[in-house]
């Protein structure tokens, strides 16, 4: 028996919106410690890693480890049927063929059940090594989303250069070029608005806008985003999910031919 309940479906709705652009299918691995998803996008350029800890749920029970292959499009459609304030419960038997989503309104007068067929998937797990990053930047997630959107108008890729002075995003294309510099905030009274840079060595890396613009769909999950970068390794773009977990996006850089 697997059962996981969240008092408000809003978190799960936002999580689905944050992955649906990148993933068509994904395996949800459920264990005593929580729910984990690790999946590459179709082009195998980026990797999504989602972790929801069992102690972050209002109720969590997982008698046996389960790997449930889910169609993300269908799951997104089902979550859209829930109101943000509805309680959501995920339920499956051991060795399940399907999973049930149960939405209950706050006043308990409406109860909706949606059953979704599970899919068989080959489980290919990538081992992500522990990495000490040269630059770790924390910045407002809305600002990051805005910069990605704005610079995407100029080119297909954004170059991120990080130094002690700050972080610079730039894009160049046929019509011109653009760059946005953010300095580290002097006083971080408002934690949510702070730009914090932890730099060991300066880095300069280039990434495809397409993927960055998919990652920023996670913006509603968290006021701050953490960008971890080292030369010649994938960018990690991380959003905390309340007190329950996090979503990390890994993106392979573009390199000189």
């Amino acid at each position: 028996m697997f059962e996981a309940r969240l008092a408000q479906s809003a978190i799960l709705k936002k999580v689905l919106e944050a992955v649906k652009d990148l993933l068509t299918e994904a395996t949800f691995e459920c264990s005593d410690s929580g729910i984990q998803v690790q999946a590459m996008d179709n082009a195998h350029v980026s990797l999504v890693s989602l972790n929801l800890r069992s102690d972050g749920f209002d109720k969590y029970r997982c008698d046996r480890n389960l790997s449930m292959g889910m169609n993300i499009g269908t799951m997104t459609k089902i979550l859209r049927c829930a109101s943000s304030e509805d309680t959501v419960t995920l339920r499956a038997v051991d060795s399940p063929d399907n999973i049930i989503f149960i939405f209950e309104s706050q006043n308990k007068e409406k109860l909706a059940e949606y059953e979704m067929k599970l899919i068989n998937m080959d489980l290919e797990h990538l081992g992500i090594p522990e990495t000490m990053y040269s630059c770790v930047v924390k910045m407002p997630s809305q600002e990051f989303a805005r910069i990605c959107r704005d610079l995407s108008q100029f080119g297909e890729a954004i170059t991120i250069a990080c130094s002690k002075e700050g972080i610079k995003f730039s894009a160049a294309g046929d019509y011109g070029n653009a760059n946005v510099k953010l300095a580290q905030t002097a006083d971080s009274d408002k934690e949510e608005e702070a730009v914090l840079i932890d730099m060991q060595e300066p880095v300069k890396l280039t990434f495809a806008c397409r993927y960055l613009n998919s990652f920023v769909k996670a913006t509603p999950l968290c006021a701050q985003v953490k960008l971890s970068m080292s030369s010649d390794v994938p960018l990690v773009c991380e959003y905390q999910i309340g007190e329950i977990g996090h979503i990390r996006y890994y993106l392979a850089p573009k390199i000189d031919d």
Partner: peptide, 14 residues
């Protein structure tokens, strides 16, 4: 010009 790397080339596949 730059070419796009794949993510699996950085991480071990299990």
């Amino acid at each position: 010009s730059k070419s796009q790397m794949g993510i699996a080339s950085y991480f071990k596949v299990h």
